[in-house]
Write a protein that binds this DNA or RNA. Sequence first.
DNA 1: TTGTAAGCGTTATCAT
DNA 2: ATGATAACGCTTACAA
Lengths: 344, 344
Amino acid sequence: MSDTKATQAKRQRTGVRVTMATVGRMAGVSQVTVSRALSEPDKVSADTLRRIHSAIEQTGFVPNAIAGALASQRSRLISALVPSLTNVVYSSFVKTFSDSLREAGYQLLLSETGFEPEEELKAIASHLSRRPDAILLTGIHHSAQARKMLLGADIPVVEAWDITDTPIDMCVGFSHVEASRAVADYVMATGYTQAATVTANDERAHRRRDAFAARMTSLGGTPVAAHDCEGPASIASGRAALSDLIEREALRTGVIFCSSDVLAQGLLIEAQACEINVPGNLAIIGFGDQEFAAHLEPALTTVRVDRNRLGKEAADTILTRLNGGEKKRVVVDLGFEIVTRASA
Amino acid sequence: MSDTKATQAKRQRTGVRVTMATVGRMAGVSQVTVSRALSEPDKVSADTLRRIHSAIEQTGFVPNAIAGALASQRSRLISALVPSLTNVVYSSFVKTFSDSLREAGYQLLLSETGFEPEEELKAIASHLSRRPDAILLTGIHHSAQARKMLLGADIPVVEAWDITDTPIDMCVGFSHVEASRAVADYVMATGYTQAATVTANDERAHRRRDAFAARMTSLGGTPVAAHDCEGPASIASGRAALSDLIEREALRTGVIFCSSDVLAQGLLIEAQACEINVPGNLAIIGFGDQEFAAHLEPALTTVRVDRNRLGKEAADTILTRLNGGEKKRVVVDLGFEIVTRASA
DNA sequence: TTGTAAGCGTTATCAT
DNA sequence: ATGATAACGCTTACAA
C-alpha cells in the first residue's frame, strides 16, 4: 500500500493499465528490460526475451507511444495539411506521401485546411503542439505568423504543390505560372486568339488564371474573360460556368482553360447539352489529367502533374532529412506536361 | 548549475526548449499557473493572465500536447482507418467525420489500410499505441486478434459503412445485403431477367455482388455472370469489364450491377464505343451516387448512400460517448436509396 | 488566486 | 545482460 492518494484516485477513474512494469513483473525482469526487449532485442538474452513476449501476449500489452515520444523527444508522427481531401488531386498525393512514411515507421496526422490562411494557421498550431517529427504544407503562401511558428518548431518543413526560391525549409512541386504560360503558348500556337478561364476557389488556380490571361494578352490575344466559381470544383459548377460565359460574354468560340479536369468535364457536358461542338466551336482545356480525362468524349486536353511522384518526393525529402541528411534548402521542381487530346 | 548530467546531455542535442516553466519564469509565476492560464483562464487573475500571454507571445511557446496527453490520459486524438483515400466515397466520409471532430477539439490520426485484414491489424496496433480517445474502423469484419485489442483499449470503437447486431462497440452504416436485394428487386420489377455484376476488389462490394446474385436467382432470374476487377475501381477497369463480359459471356443484353459509379461510368463509355445502346440493349446500375452520376449520358441509375451523414453520425456517436454518454451498444442504420435514372 | 508535489509510461544514461 | 535513476513537460490533487 505505498500508493499515494493521487495514484489511488487515478486507479479508480481508469481501468487496469498494463505497462512495461506490469509485463516486467510478470516476466521477472525490470521495466527497462521490457523496453529493451522491444527496441533493441539483441541486447536481451533469448530466454528473457521469451518470457517477456509471453507476458506481453498474456496481458495484451500495447506500448504507450505517447510516453515513448515524451521521453525520446521523437513522436514518429508526421503532419500533413492539405486544402481538400475529397479532391482526388490531393487525396492521391496524400496517399503516396503516407505510404512512403508508413513504410519508414511514421504515422500521419492529417488536417484539411481549406484555402483560408486563418484555418491553416490554427491547424499549424494544433499540429505543432503534437510535436510531429516533420510537417507537410500545401502551397507556398503562409502567414508571417505561420512561418515563424514553423521555423521555431525546428523540424523539417515541406511545402508541396508549388515552387519558390525561398521556401520555409524545403519545397517540392512545380511552377503554376510556367504551366499556365505553357498552356497559353500552346493555345496561341494552335491558332486560338479568344480565350476564357473557369477557375475554382483555390489560390493556386487563381494564380494560374492570372498567369494565363497575362500571357495571352502579351502574345496578342484578346482579353481573357474569366468565370470564377464559388465553391470547390464540381461538374455542376462547370456547367454553370459555361452557361454563364455564354450568356454574359456571348462566348461561343475560342478556348476555355479550366482550373481542373472536373470543371472541364462540366463544361464538356454543358457544351453537349447546348449543342456546341467541341473543339469545333469551342475548345476546352483541363488541369490535372485525372483518370477520366482520357475517356471523355472528346478526350480532354489537359495539364499533367505527377501527383504520385509529388507525394513520394515530398516523403523522401523528409525522410532523408530525418535520417541525418544535412539541413540544407531543398527545392524540387517536378515540372508538368501538356497532354494534347481532342478537346483543344 | 543544478542540472544533472542527463539534462545537460539533452540540452546539447536539442535546441532551446520553451516550456510552461520557461513562460512561468518570465511571467513571474509558477509552471502550474501557466497551465491554468491556458486551460482554465477564469481561475487566474487578469493581471497574471496578461503577463503570461505576453511571455507566450515573446517566447513563441507552443504547448506540448504529448506531455499533456500523458499526464491527463487523454490524447484528444481520434484514429480513423479507411480502406482507401483516393476513393471519393471514403474521402468525403473522412472529411465530414474529421470536420465534426475538429470542431470538438480532436485531431485525426489517419491510415489507409486497403482491404487486407493483416494490414488492418498492424494499423490498429500502431494506432492504439498512440492512445487515441476513440477509433473508427471501416467495415464489420475484423480478425479475432483485432477485436481483442480494440476491446482491451477500452475506448469508443465505431465500425462504419456496414451494419451488424454484434458490433465491437458501436456501428453506423447500412446493410449491403439489403441494398443489393433492393437492386435485384428493382431489376426484376423492371423486367430484366438476365443480369451480371462488375465488382471492384472490396470486401463489401463482394458481399453486394453475392447478395444480388442470390436474390436474382431466388426471384427466378437466370444465373448472374460476374466479372471481378483486380485492383481498385477505375474507368479503365470498367471498360475492360464490359469488354470481358461481352466476349466471355456473350452478354449484350440484360442489366449490369456495378460495385461503384466509376466502374459504371467505364461500362457506359465502353458501351458507347461498342455501339451498345444503354439502356435499350444493356442497362447499367452503379453504386454510390457520386456527383457525376446524374450528369452522365444516359444518367446513371445508382444506389445513394448519404456519405456525409455517415461521417457526421460516426463522429456524433463518438462525441456523445466521450462527453459522458453511457456506454451502450449503438447501431445506426442510415439506409440507402435507389436513384432511378435513365441507364436502367 | 497561486503554489507544491506526485504521477503519467516511456527512453537515456550510467552502473553493475 | 540487466537494473537504478533521472528526465521528458505536462495535469491533477491538495495545500496555502
